[in-house]
Design a protein around this nucleic acid. Sequence first.
DNA 1: TATTTAATTGAACATCGGTTAATAAAAAGG
DNA 2: CCTTTTTATTAACCGATGTTCAATTAAATA
Lengths: 190, 190
Amino acid sequence: MAARKAVDRELSRKVIIDGAHQLFVDEGYQAVSMRMIARELGYSHGAIYYHFKNKAELFYAMVEQDFVMFNKELMSLMQHNGVEEENIKGLLRGFIRFGLTYPNHYEVMFMMKDKEIEQYATNAPEQTYKMFADAIVANMTKQIEVKRIWSAFLMLHGFVSHYVKIGHAFQDVEALTESYVDAIFDMLAK
Amino acid sequence: MAARKAVDRELSRKVIIDGAHQLFVDEGYQAVSMRMIARELGYSHGAIYYHFKNKAELFYAMVEQDFVMFNKELMSLMQHNGVEEENIKGLLRGFIRFGLTYPNHYEVMFMMKDKEIEQYATNAPEQTYKMFADAIVANMTKQIEVKRIWSAFLMLHGFVSHYVKIGHAFQDVEALTESYVDAIFDMLAK
DNA sequence: TATTTAATTGAACATCGGTTAATAAAAAGG
DNA sequence: CCTTTTTATTAACCGATGTTCAATTAAATA
């Protein structure tokens, strides 16, 4: 009644997540079905349930992986080897570049909202913000109010989320990014 | 085979839109069914189809109404009766207050994204931005780069969209709003 | 090679979706 | 009071959905 696939690449959580990513971001959580994901992968939908308990768990595992990736990126931007101003600006620019280079990741992490998924919402975003804040503090010689760092975060988020929504790539807005980053830096350094 | 409701208040496009609003924002476009909306209203789902061609048209009519409301609000913030600084700050504050007072409207207008709905995406957001930009220019004595106004818009959007997403009301963030508005003003006036 | 284990399939289940159309009640007009 | 028009109900159509599970086979193990 059934047949197993001649396996050139075995299905795994990672393979499923990668295949599902684009779909989830293009169509939204509700609009993507397990059958669609399976079709995308060239497997039957039943196979996914061998690797994930259900759709929500798959989605959440994907989000978690995105946060790991983003946090790594932030880490790599933390080196303070140059002038204070350039370090901070590099960090701000890096945030924007990441968001627009991986718009689907960013959307899933910071923009998507779905009742069915809310239960899975953890402290992942806050943890990422903490890293961001620490990186700012580490690169800043003079003391800075927490409020300002948080404002910088909100400003970056406004920039990235808007251009993610309308589907612009980083190079489309590179020029504007520069002046935007300058403005945020001025606010921080004021 | 059927029975008609003892009518104390007849169904209308407006009544349907109002009833559907909360649902759409709480659950998202896909997760809300015509049957749910009808149940919410105390009518049968078929009745909605008398007033709207289909689900997408209902949704779009709702969004349109939200933009009209928002634009009116912006208009009312355009009076320049005081000091330049207070006028501008009042405008910025007004944007945030509106967004957080009507988070579901804001979400539908500026945050929601759904493939099935994209076709309906008109120039409504741009029109709203134009009004915002005009209001800034009208209240500013000295000339100002377009880039800066746009940046202010993105900053406001970052603030509002974040707090809309996590469900905070305006009074929850009133204190932070003040310093955020100050920062944006400084950027504009610099 | 024989056997066990891990992975995949596809049917089945129960539910729900948008939309249409036939039907009936209420309201309006005469 | 009768007729017409407007508005609401309900069943029906047809397809899709998440999830479970017995059957099945490829790969790993012994």
